[in-house]
Simulated scan of single mutants.
Amino acid sequence: MKYEKLPIEYWEKRDYLLFVYDVLGDMLRKADKLRLSDFEIKFDSEEIIHDFEKAEDMFEWMDRNNHHDTSLQMFKNHTFFSLLKDFCFFIYESLSCASRGKVTVAYS
Results as ranks from 00 to 15, higher is better:
K2C: 04
E4T: 02
K5H: 14
K5E: 14
L6D: 02
L6Y: 01
L6T: 14
K13Y: 08
K13L: 03
D15M: 10
F19A: 06
F19R: 08
V23I: 13
V23H: 00
L24M: 11
L24S: 03
D26I: 01
M27A: 09
L34I: 04
L34D: 05
L34M: 08
L36N: 07
L36T: 07
L36H: 05
S37T: 06
K42Q: 12
E46M: 10
E47G: 14
E47P: 09
I49K: 13
H50A: 14
D51E: 14
A55C: 05
A55R: 00
E56G: 15
F59E: 06
E60V: 12
E60Q: 12
R64K: 15
H67C: 13
Q73V: 13
M74P: 12
F75Y: 04
K76P: 03
N77K: 15
T79Y: 10
T79F: 13
F80N: 04
S82Y: 09
S82C: 05
L83N: 13
L84I: 04
L84D: 05
D86K: 14
D86M: 14
F87T: 14
F89S: 12
Y92V: 00
Y92S: 07
S94D: 02
C97I: 03
C97Y: 10
C97P: 00
A98D: 06
R100G: 06
G101L: 06
V103W: 00
Y107M: 07
Y107G: 08
